[in-house]
């Protein structure tokens, strides 16, 4: 029955399977790395802002402007612009390996802003009570900023990972592999409508799972 509805997908199934695996690989690697970088950048933005616990307007301004700069470049142009740098860092600009770097550069500015706003949402009074207790800035970051923002960080991370799913499909255009690549090669270029639909369904499943996990974490961290 499946070969009636999705004849081309069944025919190309090993390639389709590899594409799904590549997408998951890109999501896992870039998701993890960009989460770490974005949390660090988000924290730096929040603590160095005016009236922050380590207020430093020079650092804040530089970071703020760099993030704005990268956020204003459309991702597809960013990939092209980054090719020389990607070659240096990853050794290649194509395939999954070649996509990691541009994906990180593409998602981190957005992600960092999301983390920043989630940390900024935190009641100022909580930070102040940490200072009053005699906690050091690092202790305040760990025990208050991060600990008390788990729920809202889970929420913004979900949003970001879902955007990242979109970006992983775009890198397919430039030969990055993954579901996007499959959809373009088979669905678009060879006009296999069923391949495109199968890609949409897989992406839908991925997005749904990410959303469910995110909501679960966010809910569990809310008391």
């Amino acid at each position: 029955m499946l070969d009636k509805i999705f004849p081309n997908v069944v025919f190309n199934f090993p390639i389709f399977k590899t594409a799904i695996y590549q997408t998951l690989e890109m999501l896992a690697i870039t998701g993890t790395i960009s989460f770490i970088i974005s949390v660090i950048l988000g924290i730096i933005l929040v603590v160095t802002k005016k009236d922050g616990i380590l207020s430093n307007l020079i650092i804040w301004n530089i970071l703020d402007k760099i993030i704005n700069l990268f956020r204003s470049i459309p991702f597809i142009i960013l990939i092209a612009a980054l090719i020389p740098l990607t070659r240096i860092i990853s050794g290649t600009a194509i395939g999954v390996k070649g996509t990691i770097f541009p994906l990180i550069v593409g998602i981190v500015p957005f992600f960092a802003r999301q983390i920043e706003s989630s940390l900024n949402e935190l009641d100022e009074g909580l930070i102040e009570s940490g200072q009053v207790m005699g906690l050091s800035p690092m202790q305040i970051i760990w025990s208050i900023y991060l600990k008390e923002s788990i729920s809202s960080m889970a929420r913004v991370t979900t949003i970001t990972i879902i955007s990242l799913v979109g970006l992983t499909a775009i890198v397919g255009v430039v030969g990055g592999g993954g579901i996007g690549d499959f959809a373009i090669q088979y669905g678009y270029q060879q006009n296999e409508q069923d391949s495109t639909i199968a890609c949409i369904l897989v992406l839908l499943v991925i997005v749904t799972i990410v959303q469910i996990i995110g909501t679960l974490i966010s809910r569990r961290a809310t008391h």
Binding site: L126, S129, K147, E148, T222, H223
Partner: peptide, 10 residues
């Protein structure tokens, strides 16, 4: 404080 400032997740 007036608003107690307890950590909600603790």
């Amino acid at each position: 404080f007036q608003q107690f400032n307890l950590m909600p997740s603790r």
